[in-house]
């Protein structure tokens, strides 16, 4: 809720409460004859507080788009506005600071630091933010509590199940109260029961904390939790599908 309140102020550059706006975004890799055009001109708006599922076959451009949305990469051409800021004009470190403040990442492979306790993993973004020891500890414990792992704070990833590791990763992603949570196939390495738990957790965060969630998935079951589904094909947005009542109940109808 706090992040929602913060987001609501001072960003009149975009219409409504659009938080992300891509205009004519292209991305090419390599040069000359071997150049490969991964994105061929994307226009995409994402509303603040939305739960977006990104779907598409391998090589359809969804990963490239996620990298750009995550400010890890910049478009070759076109514009990317994040909260009114033209990300394509920012340098490496400016984008890092933007990620630090507004973005949270959840990966398919969890990507926790090995031999590092859950608490220390969750504290990591707070360390870079410069929080004091006590604040770091309390905020990280609150985040672990949100994902239901407060009792597991001193366990290392090796001592946690896949589902638990992903929960720690989610706690790490939300510990800084980001505006947007980017999840790259968050359930790809989990069985269906754990997958549903993770999806419910993400839905809850989206619903209760107002975090905008953008998630890549191959599984229609998981996409069903989203309110908006963006389909990619051949480096273009094929269609944007709106789900009015996303819920677990839709699972059966897919």
């Amino acid at each position: 809720m706090a992040s929602n309140a913060r987001l609501a102020t001072g960003h009149a550059a975009l219409a409504g409460d659009t938080i992300i706006a891509l205009r004519g975004v292209t991305k090419s890799y390599g040069e000359g004859a071997t150049a490969f055009l991964a994105l061929k001109g994307i226009d995409l708006d994402i509303t603040q507080g939305d739960f977006v599922a990104v779907m598409g076959a391998s090589g359809s451009g969804k990963s490239t788009t996620m990298n750009i949305l995550g400010c890890l990469d910049v478009p070759s051409a076109g514009t990317f506005q994040f909260k009114g800021v033209h990300v394509e004009t920012l340098d490496r470190d400016q984008r890092a600071l933007l990620r630090r403040k507004y973005l949270g990442f959840v990966f398919q492979g969890f990507n926790l630091l090995a031999r590092t306790s859950a608490l220390e993993n969750v504290e990591l973004p707070l360390l870079y933010r410069g929080d004091a020891k006590k604040a770091r500890h309390d905020t990280a414990m609150a985040a672990l509590d949100k994902v239901g792992l407060a009792d597991w704070w001193d366990h290392t990833p090796a001592e946690l199940s896949g589902g638990q590791q992903q929960r720690v990763a989610i706690a790490r992603a939300i510990v800084t109260s980001p505006a947007v949570l980017l999840a790259d196939e968050p359930t790809g390495n989990l069985d269906s029961e754990r997958s549903v738990e993770i999806m419910e957790l993400l839905s809850g965060l989206n619903r209760d904390s107002g975090i905008t969630v953008i998630m890549v998935t191959h599984e229609p079951d998981m996409a069903a939790f989203a309110r908006t589904i963006v389909h990619f094909k051949d480096g273009l947005v094929e269609r944007v599908e709106a789900h009015n009542s996303p819920s677990r109940l839709r699972e059966g109808s897919q």
Binding site: L72, R92, A96, L98, R100, F105, A114, L124, Y128, R129
Partner: peptide, 13 residues
């Protein structure tokens, strides 16, 4: 990979 995680989380160079 650890460096990647740190960079993604928002560590500057």
């Amino acid at each position: 990979r650890e460096i990647g995680i740190r960079l993604a989380i928002g560590a500057v160079a």
